[in-house]
Amino acid sequence: MDAYDEDSRGPQAPDGSAGTRLPEEPPEHHPPSPPRTGVAALSPRYQVAAALALAVVAVAGCVHLLMVFLSLAPANTVTKQHGQAVQDWVYPEFEQNWKLFAPNPLQQNIAVQVRAEVRMRDGGLRTTGWTDLSAQDGRAIDGNPVPSHTQQNELRRAWDFFAATHGGDNRPVGMRGSLSEQYLRRLVAMRLYRDDPTSREGVIQRVQVRSSTTNVPPPSWSREQISDKPVYRVLPWWSLTSDEAAGGVR
C-alpha cells in the first residue's frame, strides 16, 4: 500500500487543482502502525475519483445552502437578478417558511362561519343559522395535549389559502383561487353534514361562508385601546356539486 502512495505523489501533485487537492501526507515519516482509511488508503486512480466526489458534494452543498438562504432572505439585489434560478432550485421540495410569529404575530382571531340552504325531506327549503366552525375547533383544542391537524390547521389554513388567492371583491386570482374556493366549499359541506342537525336531515343545496375577525383584547397591563367588535367578510352563496351534496366528502 505504501508503495502505491509514494509513486502517486509525483504525477499527482503538479496538476491537482485547488478543488481536487489531495492530502499530501508524507508516508515515510509515519509509523506504519495505524491502518489507513479515507482517501489515503486508495491508489491514485481511485484517489482522483474520491477527490472528484468530494468536490461535487462540497459544491452541491454550498450551492444548495446559498439557494435556500436566498429564498429565505428578503428581496435583494441578487434575488432581483437571479430570483427565477433560486425559485427553480428551491421549489417544490425545499420550499420553507420560518417567519414564525414574525415580523408580528397574528393579533386577531379569525373565525370561519357557515350557513346552508337545505332541501328537507318534505321538499321544503330551509336556511340554517350561522355555525361557527372555528369555535368548534377551539373547543376541540381546549384541554387537548395533542391537537389534530384537522382541528388546528385544516380550516384555519384553508381560509388563509382562500384569502391569499382572492381579491377584496372575493374574486379568485388564478388557478389557485379556484382551487381554494372548491377546497373551502368541500370542507364546510363536510363539517355541516358532520355536526349541523338541520343539514343532517336534508340535502344541502348551497352554502355561504363568512369570516368574523375580532381583535385579541390588549393585555391588562397595556394602555392600548382597540375595538372589540367583529368585522365580517361575507362571501357569495356557492352551489354544491352533486357529489358534495350527497355527502361524498369524508
Binding site: 420560518w98 417567519k99 410569529f101 414574525a102 415580523p103 408580528n104 404575530p105 397574528l106 393579533q107 382571531n109 373565525a111 372555528s134 369555535a135 375547533d137 377551539g138 383544542i141 381546549d142 384541554g143 387537548n144 395535549p145 391537537p147 388546528q152 384555519r156 385579541v216 383584547p217 390588549p218 393585555p219 397595556s222
Partner: peptide, 26 residues
C-alpha cells in the same frame, strides 16, 4: 424577521399567540 416586528420590540408579541383560539389549549 422578529427583530423588525413592532410587537417584538414593545414586548407584547408573546401575549398574542397565547390568546389566539387556535393556539391556546390551556
Amino acid at each position: 424577521y422578529k427583530v423588525q416586528g413592532s410587537r417584538w420590540q414593545d414586548g407584547t408579541a408573546v401575549y398574542y399567540p397565547l390568546h389566539l383560539d387556535y393556539f391556546s389549549p390551556w
